[in-house]
């Protein structure tokens, strides 16, 4: 039986998202497909699968991404799907441990990709905010311009907060990396 759950995770909480997906797997609900803020699960034995997600450098349809996904599949994992450049995998626990990154270098590089991802949308949000609010003050004092201005402002604040959160995670890893490989 399949069950779809709607849930929103902020961009920087990908660790939390992965933990939640694994909690579901440990209860016997294995992820089978993903959509916009929606996760579809199927019944499985409790703890049958380990789920992992990551942000790729390119879209999943890119040749390099396809090569990467095939390599991961060849290690016994299943490719579940993607949301933009975020990809989701699962692997049967009986086929061995499943991790995408085991060392600090790779994890730091992944966080850099996330930072660029957030960094890419932040200026857009700031520009949109300024545009709507300037229009509001200089000629169109209607609810439309104010509403969109505030909406983008909230989004920009959200993105900047996320950027700082991920930067903090990266700093912590880098400190650890001074001592360990």
């Amino acid at each position: 039986m399949r069950r779809t759950v709607h849930k929103v995770f902020p961009l920087w909480d990908f660790d939390k998202e992965e933990r939640w997906l694994n909690e579901m797997a440990s209860k016997g609900l294995a992820l089978v497909s993903i959509g916009y803020c929606s996760y579809t699960f199927e019944n499985s034995d409790p703890g049958e699968y380990t789920v992992r997600l990551e942000l790729l450098e390119n879209l999943p349809t890119h040749l390099e991404s396809e090569r990467y996904i095939r390599f991961i599949e060849d290690t016994g994992a299943e490719y579940i799907g993607a949301m933009f450049r975020w990809v989701y995998f699962r692997k049967k626990h009986s086929l061995g441990e499943f991790d995408l990154y085991s060392d600090y270098d790779c994890r730091i590089r992944h966080l850099n990709r996330v930072l660029w991802f957030i960094g890419g949308i932040t200026p857009l949000m700031v520009v949109n905010t300024l545009q709507f609010l300037l229009n509001y003050y200089e000629g169109w004092p209607d609810i439309f311009h104010l509403g969109f201005g505030l909406f983008f402002a909230a989004f920009a604040v959200f993105a900047i907060y996320g950027f700082l959160r991920v930067s903090q995670m990266k700093r912590k890893l880098k400190r650890e990396h001074m001592l360990y490989e």
Partner: peptide, 20 residues
């Protein structure tokens, strides 16, 4: 991956992305 795990008696587990 399997070889490394066997060689190190299960201590070293290579993550798939790191290996790639």
């Amino acid at each position: 991956m399997q070889n490394v795990e066997a060689m190190s008696a299960g201590r070293v587990h290579l993550a798939a992305g790191t290996l790639y």
